[in-house]
Computed example of a mutant assay.
Amino acid sequence: MFDFGFSELIVIAVVMLIVVGPERLPKVARTAGHLLGRLQRYVTDVKSDIQREMQLEDLKKLQQQVEQQARELESSVRSQMNSVEADLGKTAAEVQSSVAIAANESSAAAPVAVEQATTVPLAPAGGASETAALPANPAPVDGASAEPSPQLELGLGPAPSPGQTAEKV
């Protein structure tokens, strides 16, 4: 802004020496130096305040953008979660209906299957083929619990003993 050369500064110093005088010139120069230092610090502080305000404004804009993106992400995750839950609900309903249909079909065929599964052919020593009916729920042996085996829970029928074979249903 101000362009002072060395020769111009010499002219200003000579004028100051003549106007102020040699006795008060050092005091005036020191006071002028202090005032210029304060002015420079004030200008630096104003610049840094303006820069801080600009950075604060930029940070607020960035924070708003991040919040908006977080809201968008949350809404997209929720919508996808809702669609997955709906698909899962449909699948669960289909599985339940197919299980209900299978249960109805198996309950209609269960008496025949139980009757066929409990009839086990025995091979007598003479070679004649005979069948013996086994009870549907045998009594526990030696204090064992009468809980159904996993095969019974799955509806696969009782497990054949090693010397016996069950007829296929």
Rank of each mutant, 00 (worst) to 15 (best):
R38S: 09
L122P: 06
S161H: 11
S83Q: 07
T31V: 15
P26D: 02
L62W: 00
D49T: 13
R71N: 13
T118N: 14
S129Q: 06
V19C: 01
L17F: 05
K90C: 08
A136C: 07
V28C: 07
E130S: 02
E153N: 14
E85M: 11
V141I: 02
V15F: 13
V114S: 01
N104H: 11
L35P: 03
L73V: 12
P135Q: 04
P150N: 03
I10D: 10
V19N: 13
S48C: 01
G127T: 04
E74M: 12
S149R: 14
P160K: 01
G5M: 07
A29G: 10
G37I: 06
G155R: 05
T118I: 08
E8A: 06
L88G: 10
P138E: 00
E72S: 05
S79T: 08
A159R: 08
G163T: 07
V11W: 07
L35M: 11
L56F: 13
S97R: 15
S83F: 04
S129G: 03
A132F: 02
Q116G: 01
D49Y: 13
P158I: 04
S149E: 04
G33I: 07
V141C: 01
A100L: 01
E105C: 10
I12K: 09
L88S: 12
A159S: 13
S83K: 03
A70F: 09
V141D: 12
L9K: 08
K61E: 15
L156Y: 04
T31H: 09
P160N: 00
A113D: 06
M1G: 10
A117S: 10
